[in-house]
């Protein structure tokens, strides 16, 4: 579905050129849930912006469904670390912002928006305003907004990074539920190794800047993905492997 070939991205700054991405190669199949982990500042967000067509690679090419990305990709739902809700709209209208901006008929999507809100535990919150919600609830609204038009592709940049562990665990389960069955392709950026393993079919490990793909790990479990899965030997093996890679890269010591 997504082909990233030889992508380089550098930023000219006053102290010289910063190379954020260095020959990134990555193919993502349709329906895959792919997480990217890597040290802070290694270019994960930059890569996602390039995939979204909101930034242009300095070299190389990115194609989505065999179409080269040259401008903003619109067949997509995006979630950032901040919920980015609009203070002047209630929860339902925040979700329907997606529909409005696309010029689609709002009435047709109202039920779907309400159903999504219900699935993430926000039933009866549709008339609340962002300031009346907790951080986790806001992020759930952002998630519903990213899904309301049923996009084939989800791009998420540390969507749960600002949440406490408990809320984060719940959001992980909610996300798996929402993506289940629907053949959505997900590109998920995170700092949390266990979150990446828990959610993904593949975990991509990036090196520190200039960011390269250093490891590509297929994740599969015989067990159903529930939170206890995080303590089974196989899960722990995956974790060890990724930590080992970071140690080898010099990102972690000890």
């Amino acid at each position: 579905m997504i082909e990233i070939s030889n992508v380089n991205k550098s930023f000219p700054t006053k102290d010289g050129t910063v190379v954020a991405l260095d020959n990134v190669e990555l193919d993502i199949g349709k329906g895959d849930f792919v997480s990217i982990v890597g040290p802070s500042g290694c270019g994960k967000s930059t890569l996602m912006m390039c995939v979204a067509g909101l930034a242009q690679p300095s070299a190389g090419r990115i194609t989505i469904e065999n179409q080269q990305v040259t401008g903003p990709v619109t067949d997509v739902g995006i979630v950032f670390q901040d919920a980015l809700l609009l203070d002047w709209r209630n929860v339902l209208d925040n979700v329907l912002f997606q529909i409005e901006m696309r010029g689609l008929p709002k009435a047709d999507y109202r039920d779907r928006a309400l159903a999504l809100l219900k699935r993430v535990g926000l039933a009866s919150f549709e008339n609340k305003y962002p300031w009346e919600l907790s951080g986790g609830m806001r992020q759930r609204v952002a998630l519903c907004r990213a899904l309301v038009h049923d996009p084939p592709l989800l791009l998420m940049d540390e969507p749960f990074g600002a949440l406490d562990t408990l809320t984060r665990d719940q959001m992980n389960i909610d996300l798996l539920n929402l993506c289940e069955g629907g053949n959505k392709t997900v590109l998920f950026i995170t700092h949390s190794i266990s979150e990446a393993i828990f959610l993904s079919d593949r975990v991509i490990v990036m090196s520190q800047r200039p960011g390269r793909v250093v490891e590509d790990i297929r994740i599969s479990f015989d067990e159903e993905r529930k939170l206890d899965i995080r303590s089974i030997p196989r899960f722990v093996e995956y974790e060890k492997r990724i930590y080992h890679t970071f140690r080898k890269l010099g990102v972690l010591s000890g």
């Binding site: 979204a52 903003p72 990709v73 995006i78 950032f80 980015l84 901006m101 696309r102």
Partner: peptide, 21 residues
Amino acid sequence: DPNYIHLARSMGASRSKIYWR
């Protein structure tokens, strides 16, 4: 926050919509 504009552009919003809404 520029990410609001990124978000709106990914929704295919026109410039005038981004301005008004």
